[in-house]
C-alpha cells in the first residue's frame, strides 16, 4: 500500500514535469505551459519516496517503486503532446456515433 502511494505521488510529479518541460514544449512547438511548481520542487517530490520508503516499508517496496517510476516515467514521456486530447476526442466521437445509431 505504501509503495502504491509512493508511486502515485511520483507519477503525479513526473506528469507535471512532462507537462512543463521546456525542451519538449520547444520541440513540439507548444505554447509556454502554466508552471505549477518549480522543476526542482517537482523532482524533490518525485524522488522523496526514495528517502522515506526505506524507513517505513520493506526494501522490496522501494525496489518496486523505483522500477515503477522508471517504466512509468518512460510511458509518460513517450506519449506525444496532445495524444490524450486526441484519445478523448475519439471517445467522444464514438459516443456520439453510438447515440446516433441508437436513434
Amino acid at each position: 500500500m505504501l509503495a502504491l502511494i509512493a508511486i502515485f505521488i511520483s507519477f503525479g510529479a513526473l506528469a507535471a514535469l512532462v507537462q512543463q518541460d521546456p525542451k519538449r514544449a520547444r520541440v513540439f512547438r507548444q505554447d509556454a505551459r502554466r508552471v505549477w511548481l518549480s522543476s526542482r520542487a517537482l523532482w524533490l517530490l518525485c524522488l522523496s519516496p526514495s528517502v522515506i520508503l526505506p524507513f517505513v516499508a520493506p526494501f522490496a517496496h522501494w525496489v518496486i517503486w523505483f522500477g515503477a517510476i522508471t517504466a512509468g516515467g518512460w510511458g509518460l514521456a513517450y506519449l506525444r503532446p496532445g495524444v490524450l486530447h486526441r484519445i478523448r476526442s475519439a471517445l467522444v466521437q464514438c459516443e456520439a456515433r453510438m447515440l446516433q445509431w441508437r436513434g
Partner: peptide, 26 residues
C-alpha cells in the same frame, strides 16, 4: 532530453529520440 519523445516524420532525429528516451529511462 529526459522528456523529449519521438519527433514525427521517421527521420534520424526521430529514431534518436526514441532510442534515447527508452535507453535513459531504462
Amino acid at each position: 532530453d529526459l522528456f523529449v519523445t519521438e519527433r514525427p516524420g521517421g527521420r534520424v532525429v526521430s529514431l534518436r529520440d526514441r532510442h534515447g528516451l527508452a535507453s535513459v529511462w531504462s
